[in-house]
């Protein structure tokens, strides 16, 4: 198992290096930064001096290495637009995105698993079929449309929930949280549903399919033939077997929840990193874009790694050495 983990970590590092290369390349594709930094009245000598100062006269590989070195220490330079360190801006914005992603993730996971089990067990029931049909809408409607619809119904027409922003936040150390105030919680509801709905329907359909598959297995039939209660068959015998593939997908979805938060954050003007990224694109704020790219890829890779570890926890067949295997 240790060898497996080491191999996976090695692969993860490789992925990050490639993403780093992409992020680094962005700087070079949008023109010479020296042009922007020096004014109209510049001499060739000025340009040369600044190039040397910034290390731009070094070969590509050296520049890339220095970029990685800095990035690994969380240093992505100054934001072109705000003139502040990018890392500082990201850290400031991160709590909003993480809280939103956390709530939507929970919603998607528990809602998806519960509905998936329900629709699988009551396969022929009316309510299960209604849920399945409605879930089609969840899958096929684009996120921004769902967000706008929710805003229209619950903010504009009913006036129950705020349509934008994060409400009042409380500061605890370096973290700002919206969980502790009523307006903060209220503001969280619509964006969380918008962001989590697609993932929820996806998980629900996945759980349902897997569950139906598992319920057809011989060991479920054998458990029935032994007179095991339906409750235990569904939730002990079947669910555990269902969860193995579900965990993979769910883990990957968790990553994409953070990444896709861009759209939801834009619709709800949620002050997170996604909105920061969109604004950065509009102003060609390369350092912010590069840092965001690196951050998301670290999250994806990290989540993947954790998901792989989870397999071992759930499936005993992976825990033993191959050599000890049966026949």
């Amino acid at each position: 198992m240790l060898a497996y983990i080491i191999r996976r970590v090695f692969q993860s590092v490789l992925v990050l290096l490639v993403v780093g290369l992409v992020a680094f390349a962005m700087f070079r594709f949008v023109g010479d930064p020296v042009d922007n930094m020096l004014g109209q009245e510049r001499t060739q000598a000025d340009i040369e001096r600044l190039r040397e100062q910034l290390g731009l006269d070094q070969p590509f590989i050296v520049q890339y290495w220095r970029f990685l070195e800095q990035a690994a220490q969380g240093n992505f330079g100054l934001s072109y637009r705000q003139g502040r360190p990018v890392a500082e801006i990201l850290i400031e914005r991160l709590p909003a995105t993480l809280e939103l992603a956390f709530v939507s993730g929970l919603l998607a996971l528990f809602g998806g698993i519960a509905l998936g089990i329900f629709t699988a067990i009551r396969r022929r029931g009316v309510s299960a079929n209604v849920i399945m049909t409605v879930s089609l809408i969840g899958v096929s409607l684009p996120t921004f449309l769902i967000g706008i619809l929710l805003i229209y119904v619950f903010s504009v027409e009913l006036g129950w929930l705020p349509s934008f922003g994060r409400g009042e936040v409380t500061r605890i150390g370096g973290w700002t949280t919206g969980f502790l105030t009523e307006s903060g919680l209220k503001a969280l509801i619509l964006p969380a549903i918008t962001l989590g709905l697609y993932q929820m329907t996806l998980i629900m359909r996945l759980v349902r399919t897997e569950m139906l598959e598992v319920l057809r297995m011989d060991y479920i039939r054998f458990a029935r033939a032994r007179g095991i209660r339906e409750k235990s068959i569904n939730f002990r015998h079947a669910l555990k077997n269902t969860l193995v593939p579900v965990i993979t997908i769910t883990g990957l979805q968790l990553g994409s929840i953070i990444a896709f938060a861009i759209i939801t954050e834009t619709v709800f003007q949620w002050p997170g990193v996604g909105l920061l990224f969109i604004n950065a694109i509009q102003f060609v704020d390369i350092p912010v874009m590069a840092a965001y790219l690196m951050m998301i890829s670290v999250m994806f890779v990290g989540i993947n790694l954790i998901v792989d570890m989870l397999y071992f926890a759930i499936d005993p067949r992976l825990r033993v050495d191959r050599t000890a295997g049966g026949h």
Binding site: M217, D218, Y219, R221, F222, H237, K240, N241, R317
Partner: peptide, 12 residues
């Protein structure tokens, strides 16, 4: 049942 490989729940 016929197949002992599939009649037992692999996770219990």
């Amino acid at each position: 049942f016929q197949d002992p490989l599939t009649s037992l729940n692999p996770l219990l």
